[in-house]
Computed example of a mutant assay.
Amino acid sequence: MNAFCFRSRSVFGVAVIAVAVLLVAVSGCGSPKKQREYAVPHSLCGIPVNHNELAPFMPAGKKLTIRKKVPDSLSWVCQVRIDSRVAVEIRQMWLTSSSTAYFVGGQADSRLDREAEGGRFLYSGWEAFGKTRRCTHRKLPGSHIFTAFQMRSSDHRDADAMRHLIIGYTNAVEDTAICKEGRSFA
């Protein structure tokens, strides 16, 4: 092998290495991955939630705001917003039905494929619905508080986490004054 071939191969090798290093450096200059700059809450509108199970569903963003709306005396909605987007929506509603499936029927985009406790809880990887056992409205015989937990701006799917979230949340609702006293939300 002559000296010219050896030199051109080594110059070529150095050039290839230099280009590879440059590509790696440039690829690191892309837009930085968005981070979560807020703390994941331990309660939503006064009801405790499992922070660890909620966290994977929470999107990146800077500011978390929680707003409770009471559209009528028999229901309320808790919206969790990250920056300007709704991330989580939780509902409680008094109904005179014995079926969680009936409550779910009022939710337009629900696609539930799992159930727990004989249908008391219905859920999927991103939403869940439940029925309290010990909440009866004093003016609505046979009524119960039904609960809904829906992830609105997350691509994360975890049916097991949703099952745990709705069961824990619904059990916590049973410990509220509204449930124990059987009164309206407004």
Rank of each mutant, 00 (worst) to 15 (best):
L122S: 06
Q150F: 08
E115M: 05
R85W: 03
S75R: 12
S184T: 09
L165Y: 05
M1W: 03
N52T: 15
G118W: 11
K180E: 07
G13F: 13
K139F: 13
L122D: 04
N52I: 13
I166N: 12
H51G: 14
Y123E: 03
Q150D: 02
A172Y: 11
R36H: 13
T132V: 04
K139M: 12
Q150G: 05
H137C: 00
V173A: 00
A87M: 09
M58D: 10
P56Y: 05
L95M: 15
D83L: 13
S98Q: 14
F6K: 13
R120W: 04
S98K: 14
L112S: 11
K68N: 14
K180Q: 14
P48G: 13
Q35G: 01
V88G: 02
S75N: 11
E89V: 15
I90K: 14
D155K: 08
G119L: 07
S8P: 03
R134W: 08
I47W: 04
I47K: 05
L95Y: 08
F6Q: 07
A25N: 02
D160I: 10
F146E: 07
W126I: 14
F4G: 10
C78I: 07
A18K: 10
R133E: 13
H164N: 12
C5F: 13
G125I: 10
N52A: 15
L140K: 03
G142E: 12
P141A: 01
V80E: 02
N2W: 01
R157A: 05
S110C: 03
G118P: 11
F6G: 08
F57L: 06
G105V: 00
F149N: 00
I82K: 04
C179A: 06
S98W: 15
W76Y: 10
A172N: 13
V26F: 01
G106H: 01
G46N: 03
C135Y: 07
W126Q: 11
R134T: 02
C5Q: 15
F129V: 03
M1Q: 08
S143Y: 02
C5N: 10
A186I: 07
A87W: 09
K180R: 15
C179V: 14
R9Y: 10
G61C: 02
M1I: 02
A116C: 06
M151H: 05
